[in-house]
Write a protein that binds this DNA or RNA. Structure first.
Lengths: 334, 334
DNA sequence: GTGAAAGCGCTAACAT
DNA sequence: ATGTTAGCGCTTTCAC
């Protein structure tokens, strides 16, 4: 059996409260006993039982993370950031990948409740009222990551999607492109879909290129879909010289399609992505893209959640982080 | 406060033991009371406290997963498989990304112990004696994934790296290539490094192409390293017409390097990868590769761990899964 | 079939 | 400064 506090107490010849004290308030116990206890702990390889502690503290020192797609590099970066913050703040992390499945998401929330996670980071997905109800029903504090809520007062952290998209398209325009398409997220399930589209529209109309507003196709998060969307886009609008993709995956899918059609990127068509995934600089051609501070987003989300948990509220409710244009090889002057 | 079993009992007008019974052995309580209890549970949104349960069962119904690099798509696939198996088997999953940091790995093991995970899947890293000692010291059962141990009797599951590498190189040879290089994993920290090198050597010598045996450079898991390794490889051996990369990331890094040098793939040089990551079919050119059953590997690992946990042993200790050659665009006849 | 009570490992309030 | 004890929420004997 694993050693318990009682075993340690016995071996050190003290009471269990003394053992407990050396763990939680070492300065309140005399050095001689403290050392004996420490010695016993060492010897027995004793580690307190998180169940027993949790029962008392009513805290698990564990944070939950809900992501829609673990195979998307974007979330890998989020995880790394959040994990580092968790280590710093003394939390464990429970990562749940919903695969964009509603039932699974709901069931993970149950798990979180049962395991008594202290708080949840809800990433990227749209916070449907049903999710919201459940979350508040569970009374687990949560923050939104790469998402936000207009209806409810929920702490969130993300990039300014509208401005970021605007910057991307503006860049294309400044390169001299006038026939610009876009491959976006469908608006129904995505929080960043609409603002990125808005940014596209603003940039394009502002420059008198409003005819591009309808040159938009939607894809479903993965490059295979983007490949298909690119096919539709170029079938409907063969004259495009540039396309704004709302995700690097989409950019890769689009370029892949173009390549299969023997269209040169950036020779004939410029493509700009979004995210700046690790793969963006490995792809051929290397992707011009709008970088999100992915790692920092994850890190900040954990910090923000911690703030919410420890103070009961949050200094800035809807927080934005900076994006940045990164010019590589997939774009060129018209 | 969250509802407890006592609240449910009170509302249903029964004792707490009855409530407990409807949850764990419903057939032992009469229908009328059972319904009242169920009703109360519903109404209070009651969910048992995992801490209290854990204290009694001495089980957390949670599995731990240790991976070296969450930003490697390989592990994303592993996670998906393992997660699905966990759902089927009734476990939660605690994923810890070590970033190949020894201290971090050790500290995660402590966390696992404290949180009383029932078992651990240790993925891909070499099981150093120090890790082994710690794991057995913690008395937490574990299985090795994409790894194995020769010294210890530890359940493991992986692909046959030697044969897989052999098949890859053999394919290159059958394509007519005679000047073949390799970009491998350094042998010190990797379990699959040596056998994949052995497979390369066997294929090459068997066909009288033993002079290639020294045409090998090593890289450190990421494509940036492979890019550099490719540079060294082609600097030392400019006549190469094919290269075997022990990871798709390496293949991408190699192709990226070649592209920067205006060397055509597969026109001038054929490249074969290993893993068949999701990105392999998105890259340009699409990667010819040795596919690992990544998802199934993760799934099987969880099943195997479950087997170990529930029966105390495992039917086949060192298990192998099938790999498969997938021919796409990065290879061509010489 | 059902309830009372002990106890899982720990912390904290209370005694000493 | 240290020990004794109640109790966190649950399961599981043991009576009835």
């Amino acid at each position: 059996m694993k050693a318990t506090i009682r075993d340690v107490a016995r071996l050190a010849g003290v009471s269990i409260s003394t053992v407990s004290r050396v763990m939680n308030a070492p300065e309140t116990v005399v050095a001689s006993k403290r050392d004996r206890v420490l010695e016993a702990i060492q010897q027995l390889q004793y580690q307190p039982n998180a169940f027993a502690r949790g029962l008392i503290y009513k805290k698990s020192f564990t944070l939950g993370l809900l992501i829609p797609d673990i195979e998307n590099l974007y979330f890998a970066g989020i995880i790394r950031g959040m994990q580092d913050a968790c280590i710093k703040l003394g939390y464990s992390l429970m990562i749940c990948n919903t695969d964009r499945d509603k039932e699974r998401l709901l069931s993970y929330m149950d798990t979180f409740r049962e395991k008594q996670v202290d708080g949840i980071v809800f990433a990227s997905d749209k916070l449907h009222p049903e999710y919201y109800e459940k979350l508040v029903g569970c009374r687990i504090p949560f923050v939104l990551l790469s998402s936000h809520s207009d209806e409810y007062e929920i702490p969130s952290i993300e990039v300014d999607d509208e401005v970021a998209a605007y910057d991307a398209v503006k860049f294309l325009i400044e390169l001299g492109h006038r026939e610009i398409g876009m491959i976006g997220f469908g608006h129904s399930d995505s929080m960043s879909g609409p603002p990125r589209y808005d940014g596209f529209v603003r940039a394009v109309t502002e420059s008198g290129l409003g005819h591009n507003v309808i040159r938009v196709k939607y894809a479903n998060h993965r490059f295979e879909d983007a490949y298909q969307a690119a096919h539709e886009l170029f079938t409907d609008h063969p004259g495009l010289t540039a396309v704004f993709c709302v995700a690097d995956e989409f950019a890769m899918g689009t370029i892949s399609y173009l390549k299969d059609r023997n269209v040169l990127v950036p020779g004939q068509v410029s493509v700009i992505g979004f995210d700046n995934l690790r793969m963006a600089s490995m792809f051929i051609p290397k992707l011009t893209t709008i970088a999100q501070p992915i790692y920092q987003l994850g890190y900040r989300a954990a910090e923000k959640l911690h703030e919410l948990l420890s103070t009961g509220s949050v200094e800035v409710l809807r927080e934005k982080m900076q994006h940045k244009l990164i010019v590589r090889e997939s774009s060129r002057e018209k």
